[in-house]
Design a protein around this nucleic acid. Sequence first.
DNA 1: TCCGAGGGCGCC
DNA 2: AAACGGCGCCCGCGGA
Length: 718
Amino acid sequence: MTALHIDFETRSTVDLRKTGVYVYAEDANTDVWCAAWAIDDGPVNLWVPGDDTGPIERIRERNDMLGAVVHGNGRWKGCEIVAHNASFERAIWANIMGPRYGWPIPKPEQWRCTMAMAMAMALPPGLGDCSKALGLNVHKDDDGKRLMLQMAKPRRPRKGEDPDALFWWDDEERRQKLYAYCKQDVEVERAIEQHLLPLRKQELELWHLDQTINDRGIYVDTDLCRHALQIVDVATNWLNDELAELTDGSVTKITAVAQLCAWLAAQGIPTESLDKAHVTDLLGQDLPSNVRRVLEIRAEGGGAAVKKIDALLAGTCRDSRARGLLQFHAASTGRWAGRRFQPQNIKRPKNKKAVPSYIEAVGTGSADFVSLLHGDPLAVVSDCLRGMVGASPGNAIYAADFSNIEGRLIAWFADEQWKLQAFRDFDAGVGHDIYHITAGKILGKDPGPIDAPTITDEERQGSGKVPELALGYQGGVGAFQNIAKVYGVVVSDERADEIKVQWRAEHPNTVQWWYDLEQAAKDAIANPGTTYHAGRIAFRKAGSFLYMRLPSGRAICYPYPCMKRKLMPWTTQGALISPEHSEPCGNCCGHDAGCDECTMGYVTVPAVYEQLPVWKDSICYKGVDQFTRQWTDQFAHGGLLANNAVQGTARDVEAEAIVRVENAGYPVVLSVHDEVVSETPEDFGSLDEFKQLMATLPEWAEGLPLAVSGFCDRRYKK
DNA sequence: TCCGAGGGCGCC
DNA sequence: AAACGGCGCCCGCGGA
């Protein structure tokens, strides 16, 4: 198959990072400096505006490329068009090359994206980073990049120039350097393309649908956004003014963490952090009234979830649709990630029922009014965020999500029969929900009749929900306490450990599956070319990659796998330093052992063991570190592999649902991991049909108990 | 003035 | 035996 490799360099008054490619491309001030292109391994050519009137050979060359490639005629029939982050090239082509320069528009299915291919192999998404990770000797031109960033935006008018006119860094030397940079990018893109696996058929089609969904965008209630912004502006000023007054001007903004900490220390309340937990903790203490109020203000305004509104409006096109909100295969497991205003992490409202009245109040744009009616305006606005996107006039939002899909997948993969049955019973209305059942097992309590469970809400949270969420991927006390904190559950580390032990005893197959996964991965690394299984998962090493094959047939990639010694997060019990013995308690007096005045007597001191660090041969591979963003060593153990397998498979279930729903006439506008959102004409379809489509089991997922719940409304909601 | 790492927060 | 994971955006801060 013939391929056209292409890269545009552009300039604009619009800040691409703030708006995204769609708003950028539709702006009249956005234009192209040049395009570099190559056919297969042929020479890299350059096109610049005005070439259409240049020497006849240049025109013929360009026409040949456009005619043959875009229409797919002659020797270039069915030509593919390849770009790195093709969304950008697609948007520029559709909005500028077509309308302004007369280029014919390619068919959507002609496009390929090397960034999507790189991400599907768990390689860094950036063109330069990717070529480095692949060890190629074709590199991005770093000086050229600096120049490109300079030429991409207007320069300041010089003395004597019209201060209101638009000027660019535009001279022959710079242009030539930019052209060279652009051509070099095509060289690099072409080189990495040769080292990347093509997306398999289903994934390529899914990426094409992803591009359609990103092009479609989602309707934004821009009036509501603007009124909300007015309120946020006023309410933030209230808080900052009060803050300045309370602190005598030493803290001016609620977001200035360092200033706040310094001020608190000066008031005799030192704190290492101002995150939610610490603030809540501090508010529980006896505090001077001004300090208390400052911390309350931090609790109110620290979240600033409302900042999303700026990002939402900045990315909204002239037709009131926000586009480019999803990134295909951003996670190595295959999940999409949210971009720009990040539709995948909008705050869940605390009080769902109040949201319609909140939206009505925010629609007035009056902070006073909102404050009078509902209290803290920032909290009210943040509860309205989901509702700022939704259905355009004449349409409705259908949305549905898979219930506890990860918990169900763990049980399915591990073949934990009692649990699969529990999910089926619950779905059939003849069983307790899984959190009741787990709590019953942990507490050794019969959960009782379905309509009158004997498990209290508190027991369900602490002994049901938290263990289920924390322990499925080999989590320990640390994981337990992290989840417990989120759900406001307080338990001792000792109790958390007991629950862990009990939970594992109830889930022998799950525990075995962790160990099997780890062993299979190690075997695969040791024996390239041979496939090793752990239940429904298979591992195989080939070339520089370890592949984890999922039931769907898709593989999760682990680049440059090897075994490496790693320090474990636990220590040995080791040799006995001092045995268990009795000592005076020490709490009652400072006297010698056996003192008559002591009232509390002796206490037992536990044995002390020498605790040594533990090193273990571990599965190691290269990846972009989640925290440092560096391409560096990553380690995997059984629980992590289980997590990857489950998350990746949940994504495959989601992907099939997206395709099925779209093909049935429900245009998809968002995907939120286990939730599909579509915008559908009011007179089309039904929620029942929509849910039915989503709940249809993929042919490779026999025996997986799927359940969905959903809603139909004018606005997006939870 | 621009950048990048890190703190903080939100979601599944 | 022992280990939850996957993301993105905003912000103030310090260094180039």
